[in-house]
Design a protein around this nucleic acid. Structure first.
Lengths: 245, 245
DNA sequence: CGCATTGTTGACAAAGTTCAATTTGCGTGG
DNA sequence: CCACGCAAATTGAACTTTGTCAACAATGCG
């Protein structure tokens, strides 16, 4: 299947299941798992995926914009994106990463229609599946487990936000930064020869931790002096995460 | 129906709908509306309420404890409670009020079982309906709209938490306190002759806003000097909420 | 009236932010 | 291949905001 075929719209009902199965399974990387699809029969999964449109988007693009009417449900297939919240003064507040298998835009499943409550931005080139709201609503009514999964995802999301709130309001800048490093290592890091590596600028780390870039710079240098990590421009090598907390 | 009858356990299937209807509608104040019951047929509502046990709890009791295995779904019928999160250092972080009609303990609806992610404490004497996890799960599978509602509630909760995060991390102590006053007025205030009145101590307001009681005291006095509010021990009369933000 | 709870005030300390001035690293084009 | 230029990162010092603590005042209940 060519790249073109992969990206073409494949909305519509299930036409001869087998064919759709080939078409849709094809777009998912091997070993792909998503909480949204958990516990759904393969027939239903095929029907669900068949109704999606696949789209590839370049880095820094905004996939959903806080306040816009929720028109699409998304599922990240590949790449990296993040949830952000915009504060009244215009600054951006990092909430969490979106990794392959994560769904977002769940607000599209609500009736009556609601606005998105967060902004989602791609950090690298990403590949997503997307469903029109109406189409998604129809599918949810046919596949009850989808609603259960959506509830579980929303609940999990709320739990993480509550945890984030505790960290952001109760802990020192140093602790928050340490936590951001450990989580980044866990979620987007690759095992390197010296430790876990990930590509983030000081400024991005600072934004994630809710700290000024200056504080981030100072603290990261302190840790570098202690041999806990090594940093070059735009990249961190975490050598001893256990010594951070 | 005597008070004793009201409080007795009424679990079990629907026995001759009409009888149950009388028993359960009886425990709900007139005009009672809950997001959890939205859009559910009256037959289903009766069955659902019939499976609940009603309980009355005195002020300051903890209804669900963060970290405990989620064993019950709750619906607040009367009174006032609040969600709290416990920080690692043991201090308590106020999240939001729970008003009559609000459901909590939704974690009980998840499979596999999960711990509660927040603590819920009564602020006055409260009356709740509660469902055993197993019973609630059975009802959700019979009444699909319950799942939809649970999802909507969880989504709303996540949205509020995200908003709270923005306020707590991005705004000044003064702004946060002002916001707490306005929200308290809206949610638990009563119209008085001089303005909107509500019963909260300085310390409670401080906790809600994430501010030290000293800062709260100073700021409240400043506002009192400006005639925006009047305060006595444990009580606030908000006279000009519009002048706060 | 006595007592516990609640609230007040001032002086001080701590944590981070801001800003300006530089320095470093790295890709690009001559 | 080197110099240029830009974005990223660093550093010090002043400044702001808010919390901490100790002492004290007031409120209201039994």
């Amino acid at each position: 299947v060519s790249n073109e075929d992969k990206q073409k719209k494949i909305v519509g009902g299930v036409r001869r299941g087998q064919a759709m199965s080939a078409a849709t399974c094809d777009v998912l990387p091997p070993g792909f798992r998503s909480r949204l699809l958990e516990g759904i029969t393969s027939a239903h999964t095929r029907a669900f995926l068949a109704a999606a449109k696949q789209q590839t988007t370049s880095a820094n693009q905004v996939l959903q914009h806080e306040g816009d009417q929720a028109s699409h449900l998304f599922l990240l297939v590949a790449g990296l994106a993040a949830f952000y919240k915009t504060s009244p003064d215009g600054s951006r507040l990092f909430l969490r990463w979106i990794l392959p298998g994560d769904a977002f835009g769940l607000a599209a499943l609500l009736t009556p229609p609601r606005p998105y409550r967060t902004t989602v931005q791609a950090l690298r080139e990403v590949s997503v599946l997307m469903w029109e709201r109406d189409s998604a609503l129809g599918l949810v009514s046919q596949i009850p487990q989808l609603c259960t999964n959506a509830f579980a995802i929303a609940g999990d999301y709320a739990g993480r936000l509550a945890d984030l709130l505790v960290v952001r309001t109760g802990q020192t800048a140093q602790y928050r930064l340490a936590r951001v490093l450990v989580e980044s290592a866990h979620q987007i890091g690759k095992r390197g020869c010296e430790g876990i590596e990930f590509v983030l600028t000081n400024e991005q780390l600072a934004e994630m931790a809710g700290v000024s870039p200056f504080t981030a710079s100072r603290q990261l240098n302190e840790w570098q002096r202690q041999g806990i990590l090594r940093k070059s421009r735009g990249k961190i090598v975490l050598r001893a995460p256990e010594r951070l907390v």
